[in-house]
């Protein structure tokens, strides 16, 4: 038994296994989040939501996945076939890979790299490429519009996203997620969302825009361009895009938790659960995800020009000013 465990500690094998586990987690996360989304929306709409498959409908995701697996994968006649088929993968993989650097609990991180924040920024940008591939590859006016909107939006909102990350980097003095979490130890008043509150808001809003959730779901815009870049997808390719969206949403919640809400740190010292601190991480991430869904079902969508105005005229100056303030304070203290 011990030999097996020791073997699992061996570097290439450990990494491959961990990566498999992360893939499994993200794919399941999509299923769980779909279910959560449907239930949350149902409660907001004063209806029941799915309640037929299994007790209180909790097996609904299984039925959904089975349906999607058995559906035909239709691709348009004039589509650029390889780009069309590669796009969902190009969208899903970045979202899954970033999970590798997130610390779930003390010592529970697949790859503790010292430039994790940079890694996160670099890899999530690839997601925009997937959107462009999907929109361009399906060769439809609607998906082209959706892809262009998606590209413009994701690239614009990278800027406030990165600028708000810099505040955290300045405070923690490190680019590693593990260091950032450890710097926030000792109760919730040490978490970064308090000193960096404007930055936290900017990060949250740009995070919403990065994962294309309402009110920034313009690339999909189901009432104007009917699904946007994913209009031509069906069956498993569509399911993969959905999984990518939900994995991205979970990822953004996890990153927000890690950077601003203390990661796996408990809110009070006496609530420290040791190895089981992943419960705190999970709870905080779930809370952020719930607010994403709450917003999704409460407010209408912005228009493209208003979206750009918000990004460049409000969020970028806000984060820049607060970055200067934080840096100045750090210099003096």
């Amino acid at each position: 038994m011990q030999t097996v465990l020791n073997l699992l500690e061996q570097e290439p094998l450990r990494f491959i296994l961990a990566f498999g586990a992360i893939l499994f987690l993200t794919l399941n996360l999509a299923a769980v989040l779909t279910m959560a989304e449907r239930k949350v929306s149902a409660y907001i709409h004063l209806r029941y939501g799915p309640n037929r498959v299994g007790p209180r409908g909790i097996l609904q995701p299984l039925a959904d996945v089975f349906k999607l697996f058995t559906k035909e994968n239709v691709s348009p006649n004039r589509a650029d076939r390889w780009i069309f088929l590669a796009a969902p993968i190009a969208m899903f993989l970045p979202a899954a890979v970033v999970w590798l650097v997130i610390p779930f609990a003390p010592g529970a991180v697949v790859a503790d790299i010292n430039v994790a924040i940079l890694f996160f920024v670099a890899v999530t940008s690839i997601g925009a490429l997937g959107v462009i591939m999907a929109g361009y590859g399906s060769r439809s006016t609607f998906s082209l519009l959706g892809a262009l909107r998606g590209a413009a939006q994701m690239i614009s909102y990278e800027v406030p996203l990165i600028l708000s990350l810099l505040g955290v980097v300045v405070l923690a003095g490190s680019l590693s997620f593990v260091d950032v979490v450890e710097a926030q130890a000792g109760g919730f008043w040490n978490w970064y969302f308090l000193p960096l509150f404007p930055t936290f808001l900017a990060f949250y809003i740009s995070g919403l825009a990065e994962v294309k959730r309402v009110p920034f779901d313009l690339p999909e815009g189901e009432s104007e361009i009917v699904g946007g870049f994913m209009i031509e997808y069906s069956g498993m390719t569509w399911a993969l895009i959905q999984a990518a969206e939900f994995a991205g949403m979970g990822l953004m919640s996890a990153i927000t938790t890690t950077l601003f809400l203390g990661g796996w740190q408990p809110p009070f010292e006496f609530l420290d659960l040791g190895q089981f601190n992943w419960v705190w991480f999970g709870l905080k991430t779930a809370l952020i995800m719930f607010t994403f869904q709450w917003i999704r079902w409460s407010i209408p969508r912005l228009r493209m020009d208003q979206l750009m105005d918000l990004g460049w005229k409000v969020l970028v100056p806000l984060t820049l000013v607060w970055l200067v303030v934080v840096a100045g304070v750090m210099l003096i203290v």
């Binding site: 709409h45 209806r47 309402v214 779901d217 009432s223 209408p300 969508r301």
Partner: peptide, 16 residues
């Protein structure tokens, strides 16, 4: 009107 602006909930309240 709200549905077309992207807010899904009012349509269900109004259909109630």
């Amino acid at each position: 009107l709200l549905l077309e602006l992207g807010a899904f909930t009012p349509i269900l309240y109004s259909f109630r």
